[in-house]
Simulated assay, not measured.
Amino acid sequence: MKVGFIGTGSMGSMLLDAFITSGALMPQQIFASNRTLEKVNLLAQRHPGLNVCSSNAETVKNSDVIFLCVKPLQYKALIHEIGKEVLYGQIVVSITSPVQIHHLESALPCKIAKIIPSITHLTLSGASLCMYGSRITEKDRLLLENLLGAISHPLEIEESHVRITSDFSSCGPAFISFFLDQWIEAAVEMTGIGRQELTALAGEMLLGTGKLLTEGGFKPHELQERVAVPGGITAEALAHLSLSLDGVFHQLITTTHTKYQEDLSKCDELFDDTKP
């Protein structure tokens, strides 16, 4: 199998690195292109054997599966560039949440899937959110999930839930890191403990908590009850958090969904212009 990457920015290069690190793909199986050719050349230096393509059309011509790792408003130009090169039997995978499957199926003749990755794939962990178009067969789905299974836990979702699930799987690492960073900052300021020491401790705590939720059979509220003894320090601190964070997560979801709807409207306009 030959896999193409159009766009080797933050998420494109992350996926590429993860697939190679996991052994799911050899560099020789990968074809990559980017508006800035230097970025692809740097990847080829890091992964000798990787095929550097001078154009996106060249990437398409050489690939069975093509990951589109570009920003939503770049899709119009990209489709005009590769549309005549895409064949029915190829699988095009978008990693951009506001670009809808029906947008791509109306503009390209091939099989369409949408996958939302996470930075956690750099450690071969986390969930990848999978959505499939009408032309995707069971064989295609298994091929994609076997590939993604080497770097993540593939989870099929409804496209209508892509925003809220992305809040957890894709945006979540940034949200949790923000919380930890604020907590660590306060601890360093108030106690004088070393930042590096606390950061390492917080990372181990987060890793262990994740395992308790995924492997230990705990639900979040059960974990709180198990740790927070009534009348104890943890319980008192949790009561403070409950008051301080009241409404915060509703506001967070409102913010991400509002921005998503704005982006979705722009994509609707964009793809209306791509119709014949």
Rank of each mutant, 00 (worst) to 15 (best):
92 V>I: 15
222 E>M: 07
196 Q>L: 00
265 S>G: 09
7 G>D: 05
91 I>M: 12
78 L>Y: 10
37 L>Q: 12
145 E>D: 05
246 D>T: 13
216 G>T: 02
47 H>S: 06
82 I>H: 02
205 M>S: 14
125 S>Y: 00
178 F>N: 13
254 T>L: 12
9 G>R: 09
67 F>W: 11
106 S>K: 13
32 A>Q: 07
269 E>G: 14
46 R>C: 09
87 L>K: 15
247 G>H: 07
47 H>W: 15
246 D>K: 13
183 W>G: 08
48 P>Q: 07
138 E>L: 04
127 A>Q: 06
37 L>H: 13
190 M>Y: 14
149 G>A: 03
119 I>K: 01
270 L>N: 06
44 A>R: 04
124 L>D: 00
258 T>K: 15
51 N>A: 05
229 V>F: 08
12 G>R: 08
183 W>F: 13
29 Q>I: 09
58 E>W: 02
268 D>N: 15
254 T>G: 15
224 Q>T: 07
262 E>F: 07
130 C>G: 02
106 S>E: 15
264 L>W: 11
252 L>H: 08
57 A>N: 05
85 E>Q: 11
34 N>M: 10
267 C>T: 11
66 I>Y: 03
88 Y>G: 00
64 D>N: 14
112 I>L: 07
118 S>D: 03
27 P>N: 04
70 V>K: 06
265 S>L: 09
263 D>K: 01
28 Q>E: 14
255 T>P: 09
130 C>Y: 00
35 R>I: 15
58 E>G: 00
41 N>A: 11
96 T>D: 14
208 G>N: 11
117 P>T: 04
22 S>P: 11
199 T>L: 02
175 F>L: 13
83 G>A: 07
269 E>Q: 14
126 G>M: 01
146 N>D: 12
58 E>H: 05
167 D>W: 04
99 V>D: 05
68 L>M: 12
85 E>Y: 04
270 L>G: 02
92 V>S: 09
53 C>I: 12
251 Q>V: 05
86 V>L: 01
144 L>N: 06
222 E>S: 09
101 I>A: 03
140 D>M: 02
269 E>L: 14
220 P>K: 02
139 K>S: 10
163 R>F: 00
169 S>H: 01
2 K>E: 07
104 L>I: 10
241 L>Y: 12
115 I>Y: 00
135 R>D: 05
39 K>E: 03
170 S>D: 08
223 L>R: 08
220 P>W: 14
202 A>C: 15
38 E>I: 05
28 Q>N: 13
3 V>K: 10
45 Q>S: 13
134 S>W: 10
139 K>F: 03
3 V>L: 12
21 T>R: 13
198 L>V: 08
268 D>C: 09
274 T>K: 08
39 K>R: 15
133 G>T: 03
169 S>P: 04
250 H>V: 12
9 G>P: 08
165 T>G: 01
100 Q>L: 11
163 R>L: 03
77 A>H: 10
272 D>G: 04
196 Q>H: 02
247 G>M: 03
209 T>Y: 10
228 A>M: 06
263 D>T: 01
27 P>D: 00
178 F>Y: 15
123 T>K: 15
158 E>N: 14
93 V>H: 03
48 P>K: 07
143 L>N: 07
70 V>T: 06
138 E>S: 04
189 E>W: 02
123 T>L: 10
79 I>E: 05
252 L>G: 01
177 S>G: 09
147 L>A: 06
269 E>I: 03
89 G>T: 12
14 M>P: 01
217 G>C: 09
65 V>Q: 08
